[in-house]
Simulated assay, not measured.
Amino acid sequence: MIHVVRMTVWQWGIRVPARQGEEMRQALIREGALDASLRVLRDGDTLILPLTGPRDGAGQFGFEAHPGREPLPRHELVGGIAIMQDDDPDGAQKILISRPSLHTVVFAEGEVSGEYRTRQFRVLAGDLTTRTTVTEHGHKFVVDLAGAYFSARLSTERQCLLAQVQEGENVLDMFAGVGPFAITLAARASLVVASDLNPRAIELMLENILQNRIKNVLPMLADARRLVDLLPWKFDRIVMNLPLAGTEFLPEAFCLCRPGGIIHFYSLVSAKGEHTARIRELGGTVIAEREVRSYSPGQWHAVYDIVAD
Rank of each mutant, 00 (worst) to 15 (best):
K94N: 04
H75S: 09
G53Y: 01
L128W: 05
T130E: 06
R42L: 10
G32S: 09
L102N: 07
A82T: 06
P17F: 13
L49D: 01
P17S: 14
G80A: 15
G59W: 09
G80I: 03
S101H: 08
Y116D: 05
I95H: 05
P71C: 04
H103G: 06
E64V: 03
A125N: 04
A58V: 12
A58K: 01
I81N: 06
Q85H: 12
T104P: 02
L128V: 07
V123D: 03
Q93R: 15
E22H: 10
A18Y: 07
R74M: 03
E115G: 03
E111N: 13
T104R: 02
R25F: 11
R19F: 12
E109S: 14
L124R: 12
G62K: 05
S37I: 08
F61N: 08
L47C: 02
Q85I: 05
M24R: 13
T52H: 05
R131V: 12
R30E: 12
A18R: 14
S98P: 13
G68W: 01
D87S: 12
A36N: 07
R55A: 12
E23I: 03
Y116L: 06
I29H: 15
G68K: 13
V106S: 10
D35H: 06
E70A: 14
E70C: 09
L38D: 01
G32D: 02
D43V: 04
P54N: 13
R39S: 08
H66T: 01
G79V: 03
I48F: 04
F121C: 15
R25L: 10
F63W: 00
E111R: 02
K94M: 05
L47I: 03
A27D: 10
H75A: 09
F61V: 00
R55T: 10
T118V: 15
A108H: 09
Q85A: 14
L28H: 14
A33G: 09
D90C: 09
P71F: 01
A82G: 12
I81M: 12
G53C: 02
G59F: 14
K94Y: 02
D45R: 15
E64K: 08
Q120F: 12
L38W: 00
A58H: 04
P89R: 05
Q85G: 11
E111G: 13
R119G: 11
F63E: 01
T129Q: 10
H75C: 05
G79I: 03
I81T: 10
A65C: 00
S113N: 09
E111Q: 08
G68Y: 00
R19K: 15
I83W: 01
A36F: 06
L47V: 00
P54D: 15
R42W: 07
I97Y: 05
P67I: 05
R74S: 11
A36G: 12
L77A: 15
F63S: 00
R69T: 03
G126Q: 03
G53H: 03
I83D: 04
G126M: 08
P54M: 12
F61T: 02
I97M: 10
I83A: 04
R117Q: 07
V78C: 12
D43C: 00
L102E: 00
A82D: 06
R99M: 08
E70W: 10
Q20R: 15
A18K: 14
V78I: 10
